[in-house]
Computed example of a mutant assay.
Amino acid sequence: MTQFQRFLAKRLAISVLLTLVAVSVIFVVLRLLPGSPFEALVTSGNLNQQQINEIRSMYGLNQPLWQQYVSYMGSILTFEFGYSILRSQPVWSVLEPRLVNTLILLVPALVTTAVLSSSLGMYVGWNRGSFLEKFSIISTTFLRSTPVFITGIFFIIVFAYNLELVPAFGMRSVTASPEGYAETFLSVDFAYHYVLPFTVAVLYYSGDFLLLARNGVVEKRGSEFLKLHRAKGLSEMQQLARAGRNSMLPILTYFALRLGMIFQGLILLEVVFGWPGIGRELVLAIQQQDYPLVQAAVFIMALAVIIANLAADVLYAYFDPTVSTNGSGSA
């Protein structure tokens, strides 16, 4: 087994352990919450105590805690998420469209801002001290540090209410009833509702990629290999292209990490724009204490983040020869 294979096996083992810890924490935290998912139903008179006991037995909530944990681990790790308590639907049928809605919004936004902000960051890093560098750093840092719901509300007030250019909320018009993903996402109505949350998400992500790209080019600008290229007569843009290419690794690994975190959704963004994503659905499920729905949603989010971290570690170890895979520092 090579050194890289041992490194990969070690990272895989750590990822499996983290997954087990994450799903265990989900189980414990949900059981520590006060109340139960049936309190509202009892209070409203929709169910009596005998019916509640029957439902608790059906979901295994009347079993000892350790038996619930064993059953829970078996179902989660085999991706058998069961049925939502309050919706009486399979959990995956509830989460799948919400997850798709989140990915449709955030993946294109992340890709767009990664390309545009990284390109701009490389350019301003190469032209250090320019007005464009100062303006871009200040503006993107301001957008990144401002809570996303504040930016979202500002855009709604300006573009939806004052200028009336785009709708303020939702993913489609109230009267629209598309069938299937093609009709849902490939329509003018969807694009009309998509513009505002997409723009806010792009601006929110822009600062990190711009600063990473800018700092990478600044570090590479005085390096020996660029002096050699300059001596060979390469133009400024050709030198910038080579400096940018050699500073891409931090951007790629950060992109992998962000891609994993996208599965959580931008909860505040989804709430502000009324976007039916997985983050908004998770908030509602926690409020209703819908155990199977919360457990499945958090498990998917945690697994995505753990896989993304694993991918980032592997990218660094594989592409950067200065990164040691045996736990020691570089030579």
Rank of each mutant, 00 (worst) to 15 (best):
A213R: 00
F154I: 15
V195C: 04
A13H: 12
A302R: 02
Y59I: 06
A256P: 04
L12K: 07
L268E: 12
L282V: 09
F209V: 07
S187E: 02
L212S: 00
S330Q: 03
E219R: 08
I14A: 15
P108T: 08
V21F: 10
L116Y: 08
L95R: 09
M58P: 00
P197F: 03
L41E: 15
L259M: 05
L266Y: 11
Y181D: 00
S177N: 15
I138R: 13
V195T: 10
M261N: 14
M1P: 13
F159Y: 08
L106D: 00
I52S: 05
E164Y: 02
T43D: 14
Q239M: 00
S71C: 01
A304L: 07
V174M: 09
P197Q: 11
I300E: 02
V91M: 03
L257T: 14
I85H: 08
E54S: 10
V218S: 03
F263M: 06
R6F: 10
V70D: 00
N101R: 09
A312R: 02
N62W: 01
L120E: 12
L186S: 05
F263H: 04
T184G: 00
Q89G: 09
G152Y: 04
G180R: 01
W66Y: 15
L30W: 03
R214F: 05
G329E: 00
S119P: 00
L61I: 06
F198L: 10
L32M: 10
V42A: 15
V188M: 13
Y83R: 11
Q5Y: 13
A168K: 03
V42S: 13
G74N: 09
S330G: 15
A256G: 06
G279E: 05
T19C: 14
V107W: 07
H193I: 02
L211E: 14
A304K: 06
F185V: 03
P167Y: 13
M261I: 12
L18Y: 10
M248L: 14
S173L: 07
P292C: 12
N101S: 09
I85D: 02
M301I: 14
V158C: 00
Y72R: 03
R6S: 13
W275V: 07
V23R: 04
L315Q: 02
L249C: 10
Y59P: 08
L196G: 05
L303W: 09
I251R: 03
L284V: 13
E179A: 09
S145R: 09
A182E: 14
E270F: 04
A168I: 04
K227R: 15
A182C: 14
Q288V: 01
V200H: 07
F225N: 03
S235E: 01
F263P: 01
D189K: 04
F225D: 09
G222W: 06
V283I: 12
T78V: 05
I300F: 12
T2S: 15
R245P: 00
V200I: 11
F185H: 10
N62T: 13
T322N: 12
G82Q: 11
V298L: 13
Q295H: 11
S235R: 11
S328R: 13
G216A: 04
F209K: 06
F27M: 05
P34Y: 09
V158I: 14
N62L: 01
E54W: 02
I306V: 11
I76L: 12
M1F: 13
I150S: 08
L234W: 04
L103N: 04
G207Q: 04
L47R: 05
S247N: 10
L196C: 07
G121K: 01
L186T: 01
T325A: 00
A13S: 14
F81W: 11
G129H: 08
